[in-house]
Write a protein that binds this DNA or RNA. Structure first.
Lengths: 254, 254
DNA sequence: TAGTGGTCTAGACCACGTT
DNA sequence: ACGTGGTCTAGACCACTAA
């Protein structure tokens, strides 16, 4: 029993064939919706769906009032997928474990500059410079961030060292969780609608502390993913994930 | 003059509001197409479009015969964008230059195992084991791959060392190009419809040769992107791009 | 079997670009 | 003004799931 192929899919395939065979060149206009509807014996809506999907797939480019064109192939950007490490390892059928190395609350006056800027937290000094109310002393001593450091193991071997900071106001119960059981990302996703994030991937020499946790030689290459995630325009969490260079890689397809 | 918002977009927004406000919980079923059509006073096709797009955006999950459900938020995959280095540096308004270090044709009997497997090329020995025609000697001595090694500079500083291999049969004029002027990726994109690719990113200690070209200390961390690109199911090109760890990073948003 | 989503039709009117 | 794509309708039949 052969499956029935939807009409819009047949049309998509026919168009792709025309492009791959070179009959329709990049940048050139293709037949109009009306013409294709007549040619394939379907309604214009069906052709419209095929063309809309192909333009979402960046195969075609549509310009209202003008026509439909074969897109210039743009292979400039390559998207590499970075998965959640716990799920990644589990789905690879490897034995996954997490060990919490440290967990603490940080007050405003303990913050270093990088974190202060990232989370947009003012220092006690900065506050006192333009305000003189009683909150100054309080806010300097109040918990503003939670910090956790976790080692992730696959088959007993350390794979990732995670350093994470979370805005204490936005996720107050964060510090109470047992992160040897609950993944930090999974918890934050459940608690807070993560809207947007930015990421960098770098290769860095392992500092002493990280090398020890990953059981590698100091200064050996590590793959470092830094990510900050926003909710309602403010940073909710910032994380640095250190991977032993010879034990982990990011990979993907496009 | 306010722009008219399409009906399907109004419906999408209303659904997103219901999800963000917590009225519709993750995993739970939402109203049916018929119900929503009645509620918003539109046809079922319009509701269908809104729901289809939201399911493509992974906000909803649709199961034929069963219903439409709020998707479990999956922030597991993070897509990191890797751009074409020449365009990347130029758009960052930095002075870009490329220096071709070497360029050569490789015959079958010169190939190492990794490349042979990647491009699916049989060795002379493997060929003679199951065929005895005259092509054996020819194919062993014939050009099968082109190899180029290029250093990419930004503001006079080496940023990327590119090692690339290209199937000589698929892109015969490749070796004749001047890659200090034409970017290898741009040329291949223009010549061959690149269909699919797979990628890995790793952190590796720089071997002697690469360290020299990048003007860094041997064994220092490098960010290595390996990519192979297919056309018509066969590997067209394989490339290793080495970046000095402290001079380059991949970054992106989601 | 009843209800859901998946697809499709044969029209229609509108927004936009080109002429 | 004309032709393009963008959106929308009020039906229809089919494929699938659950009771």
């Amino acid at each position: 029993m052969t499956k029935t192929i939807p009409a819009y899919q047949r049309i998509k395939n026919a168009i792709l064939d025309n492009i791959h065979s070179g009959k329709w060149q990049a940048g050139k206009a293709i037949s109009t919706e009306m013409a294709l509807a007549k040619e394939f014996g379907v309604s214009r809506m069906t052709v419209n769906r095929a063309l809309k999907e192909l333009s979402e797939e960046r195969v075609l480019e549509r310009r209202q009032g003008s026509g439909t064109f074969v897109a210039q192939q743009q292979f400039n950007h390559t998207f590499v997928e970075v998965r959640n490490i716990a799920q990644d390892l589990k789905s690879a059928n490897r034995d996954y474990q997490a060990q919490v190395v440290s967990k603490r609350a940080i007050t405003a006056n303990m913050l270093d500059d990088e974190l202060r800027r990232k989370f947009g937290i003012e220092t006690a000094e900065a506050l006192s410079a333009h305000s003189k109310n009683d909150d100054v002393a309080n806010s300097a001593g109040a918990t503003v961030l939670y910090e956790v450091k976790i080692i992730h193991f696959a088959d007993g071997q350390p794979i990732q060292f995670e350093e994470r900071w979370v805005d204490a106001k936005k996720v107050p119960e964060f510090i109470e969780q047992d992160f040897s059981v609950v993944n930090t990302s999974d918890y934050l996703i459940a608690k807070s609608p993560l809207e947007r994030g930015s990421y960098t991937i770098r290769a860095l020499a392992a500092p002493e502390e990280i090398a020890t946790f990953l059981k590698i030689a100091p200064q050996s290459p590590t793959l470092v993913l830094r990510r900050q995630t926003y909710s309602a325009g403010q940073v909710v969490t910032f994380v640095k994930m250190w991977h032993a260079g010879d034990r982990y890689q990011f990979s993907g397809e496009l």
